[in-house]
Design a protein around this nucleic acid. Structure first.
Length: 844
RNA sequence: GCCGAAGUGGCGGAAUAGGCAGACGCGCACGACUCAAAAUCGUGUUCCCUACGGGAAUGAGGGUUCGAUUCCCUCCUUCGGCACCA
């Protein structure tokens, strides 16, 4: 083992390569060392998580990847910091489960199949094998025996089963509506999957169009209020805000207006019922179902022309805020229920069918849009709120949206109006009560949030397990016929219909009710359905009596820490909360939330500061880095190079610093120990630094502050080099420093820590089964401290006092200083402030 | 327009509770080792000044305070989300 290096190498003309390799025999060789330990840990099932009631459990979950085929540096950035934390929790005595799997359904594999004919199943499972191999080089503590793959029939059987449970609970329904369609992905999308000003597809960036289709939805809106409640969960404010804005609850009233002819009830939603008396016209969305019926013959032509024009426009054109308002009169009138006023009904494209009821009451005096519209078409404007202090109704230059008192509003005249929303506004509260009492309207809450559209016209997804019969309508596939599996022989054609629909036989089946001929639903489910419950499949991925084993559920759930990208704030993270609540009501899960704590990582950008992409050629391949530096160095750099929650551009030179650190640690632990000659003070200082670092590292792990963990360890290493120089090596304090150092390092760089622990310190395998060291608070305390002395806010001197010095002692020490006396010029200071243990501030 | 996050050296970033701004690292400069280079080790590295010493500085301006990167107000910039939302 400790063979003397063959010092007498004949002549160095020999070849540089050989002398280098001789040197490497005792030097740090990460590739061999990492492979050795990874194999041993796997053979020993070191990271296998099994129920153990003697320990507190910790379920650490990180978002599962899509098997794109190659591991990306972004995967390292999202997985390694949570891995180090899971390891830390394990050393702290928790029984930790840290599972991994693949979100394996989805468009890329199917699109590739259209291009080259390779079956998505084949490609996906090949990609998974490749990525799993790559992931194993990370040295992470994934429990691979809990791996779950959403495209595996043993998994999607339960995705289908869950759909049926939701259907039976009345939470899944089929409806014809205008839905968002991505012409590139050839499928419908949920509202959450349409992004940005130009309303583009979240996946491919293509602007979406509207299509009228019959689709399956989940009744997510039933949980809107509950989803706004984040009590009891520790989630970032940012995510909570995004979800809250997405759901966008607004309080107001729904009021029924009757049409003059036909006496149709037209429901409108308003957040300003206190302005009802100022409603001088109504506006319907051009798509409103009543438009055709109420339009008078002489207005038919103009209305139809306007409708056609509106239909031609894209949502983006229609949605342009600064666009001039246009509209046409239908010839019909409605009766304002509060004052029986006869008011005209117009159609205009500034009213959207997709929000509220698609019809509004227009109050031009107190709404900017209605005001602009009324001015343009010379419609009456009646003020019903008078700014306080003004005696007359104001002449309006623009809509007045401020506070005041109600006027022109019958018996409610004089009621105060403030700028609060809902019942907090006395005028709104008064009108709500009055409306209810009169039976004209009622208090009402409206949301922007829509039900979750889950139908996708694609092949590579979990089939929607529903069967349609001419006589019995839609019925779920019986449990004993699950899973409905995907046929393997399909034609890859981008037709806009699922290949399942074009398959010659697959869709033909029998009705579960009458056994007569019936057809299967040929759409598949949104892949977000699969990822809404994967955390449950990890509990027991091979279990076949249900989606999960209850014993596992009872022990491990809920998820203690969940980590992933912020981009899922209103998609996956909202879906999975909805899903959990739905399952809870069905009686399958417990508690109100699936994930107690959430933390988001930022993004690794290319070296040019742009998003990494193959087309830009700025992609950093982790495999190359692992080959060159070893996984430990890459892990350390991943932690060190950026704030985890922020992300940053990659810096290829920066990794040299982490590589240097790892090598210097290796040298520190493997170089022969010089004789121990250090003073007591040196040893005490070393011990202090060790425990101070331990305190900080412990805190940083708790707080997900990974970058400072590595810098603290670098700092301590620098101190240890100095202590060694000062003769501390070999002392008891040195021994302790080495042990604590490796334990702190173990979560970050598990391989080198294990190697040094077992083979150089001779400690029992495995370091990863050691307890986390305990901070000796007494040891962290300084004996004496240097206290800066400020004069008029500027640091002029520093005095050294014993750590336990009283305020008075510190004060006199400061006043005794030469420099201070010079500034004082014999005068008494006006004021002396002593911040104990920190600073003295003298005011002249 | 509304909501949210972030602005600190050439760069990534530090800074328990309002108390020495710039830890740690990259880069750069100089030095040692080397025939030389790489690696390694050491020293220095916010800016300005007539450099012993002093002044300025955490996006800008103001406020509170003995003292502000940190608290308050106004504004600017960047990024993200929402948006004729009734």
């Amino acid at each position: 083992m400790t063979d003397k290096p063959k010092a007498i190498v004949p002549l160095k003309t020999k070849k540089a390569a050989e002398s280098a390799s001789t040197r490497q025999d005792k030097s740090y060789q990460p590739q061999a060392l990492e492979k050795k330990w990874q194999e041993k840990w796997e053979a020993d099932k070191l990271y296998r998580a099994v129920i153990d009631n003697s320990k507190p459990k910790h379920y650490a979950l990180t978002m599962l990847p899509y098997p794109s085929g190659d591991l990306h540096i972004g995967h390292w950035f999202s997985m390694i910091p949570p891995d180090t934390r899971a390891r830390f929790m394990r050393m702290r005595g928790y029984n930790v489960m840290f599972p991994m799997g693949f979100d394996a359904f989805g468009l890329p594999a199917e699109n590739a199949a259209i291009k080259d004919g390779i079956h998505p199943m084949k490609r996906t499972f090949q990609n998974i094998d490749r990525m799993r191999t790559q992931m194993k080089t990370m040295g992470a503590m994934f429990d691979w025996e809990r791996e779950a793959i959403s495209a595996d029939p043993s998994y999607y059987k339960w995705t289908e089963w869950f759909f049926i449970q939701l259907y039976k609970a009345g939470l899944a329904y089929r409806k014809m509506s205008a839905v968002d369609w991505c012409p590139n992905c050839n499928t419908t999308l949920a509202r959450e999957q349409v992004w940005g000003d130009d309303r583009h597809c979240e996946r491919c960036g293509t602007p979406v169009i509207k299509k009228d289709l019959e689709q399956w939805f989940f009744k997510a809106t039933k949980y809107a209020d509950e989803l706004l409640n984040f009590d009891g969960i520790d989630w970032p404010e940012r995510v909570k805000t995004l979800q809250t804005n997405w759901i966008d609850r607004s309080e107001g009233a729904s009021v029924i207006f009757k049409t003059e002819i036909g006496s149709h009830n037209v429901e409108i939603f308003t957040t300003r019922p206190d302005t009802l008396w100022g409603a001088t016209f109504m506006v319907f969305s051009p798509e409103h179902p009543l438009v055709d019926e109420i339009t008078t013959p002489e207005n038919k032509a103009a209305v139809n022309e306007y409708k056609a024009q509106a239909a031609r426009q894209t949502d983006i054109q229609r949605g342009a805020v600064d666009k001039e308002k246009t509209g046409v009169f239908t010839g019909a009138y409605a009766i304002n229920p509060v004052n029986q006023a006869r008011i005209p009904i117009w159609i205009a494209d500034y009213v959207m069918m997709s929000y509220g009821t698609g019809a509004i009451m227009a109050v031009p005096a107190h709404d900017e849009r209605d005001f602009a519209f009324a001015r343009k078409y010379e419609l009456p404007i009646i003020p019903v709120i008078q700014p306080e202090g003004q005696s007359e109704a104001p002449v309006l230059e623009s809509a007045y949206v401020g506070p005041g008192i109600m006027i022109n509003s019958g018996m409610l005249n004089g009621t105060k109006v403030n700028t609060e929303k809902g019942r907090k506004n006395p005028s709104i509260a008064a009108v709500l009560d009055w409306l209810t009492q009169q039976g004209i309207g009622k208090e009402s809450v409206n949301y922007r949030y829509r039900d979750w559209l889950i139908s996708r016209q694609r092949y590579w997804g979990a089939p929607i397990p529903m069967v349609h019969c001419e006589i019995h309508g839609w019925n779920p596939v019986p449990d004993d016929q699950l899973p409905v599996t995907l046929p393997e022989d399909v034609e890859w054609k981008p037709t806009g219909e699922s290949p399942l629909k074009l398959h010659p036989t697959w869709k033909h089946t029998t009705c579960p009710v009458c056994n007569g001929p019936a057809t299967r639903e040929t759409d598949t489910m949104d892949t977000f359905m699969c990822s809404s419950w994967y955390h449950l499949r990890y509990l027991s991925p091979k279990y076949d009596k249900g989606p999960f084993d209850e014993a596992e559920y009872n022990y491990w759930m809920p998820v203690d820490t969940y980590t992933g990208g912020i981009e899922h704030a209103t998609m996956h993270l909202l879906y999975t909360r909805f899903f959990h609540k739905a399952l809870r009501d069905i009686g399958l899960t417990e508690g109100h939330e699936p994930m107690l704590q959430l933390r988001n990582q930022g993004m690794v950008l290319g070296e040019d500061g742009d998003k990494m992409s193959k087309s830009k050629g700025n992609v950093i391949a982790p495999d190359v880095l692992v080959n060159r530096y070893g996984a430990d160095t890459v892990r350390a750099y991943i932690l060190f190079f950026a704030r985890w929650e922020m992300g940053a551009p990659w810096d290829s030179q920066g990794i040299e610093g982490s590589a240097r650190w790892v090598r210097r640690v290796w040298t520190l632990f493997t170089d022969p120990t010089p004789p121990t000659t250090a003073s007591e003070e040196t040893k005490k200082n070393l011990r202090r630094k060790v425990h101070q670092t331990l305190k900080r590292v412990t805190r940083d792990f708790e707080n997900f502050e990974f970058n400072t963990i590595v810098s603290s360890l670098m700092e301590l290493m620098n101190e240890m080099y100095k202590a060694r120089e000062a003769g501390a090596a070999g002392s008891d304090e040195w021994q302790e420093a080495q042990e604590i150092y490796l334990k702190m390092m173990a979560p970050v760089t598990p391989h080198i820590a294990e190697e040094l622990w077992t083979n150089h310190l001779g400690k029992p395998y495995s370091i990863h089964q050691q307890g986390w060291p305990v901070v000796d608070e007494a040891a962290t305390r300084e004996d004496s401290i240097e206290i800066p002395v400020q004069i008029n806010g500027k640091v002029r001197d520093k005095v050294i006092v014993p750590a336990e010095a009283t305020e008075d002692e510190i004060k006199s020490a400061a006043l005794a200083s030469e420099t201070v006396r010079k500034y004082l010029e014999g005068k008494e200071p006006r004021k002396v402030i002593v911040a104990k243990g920190r600073l003295v501030s003298i005011v002249l």
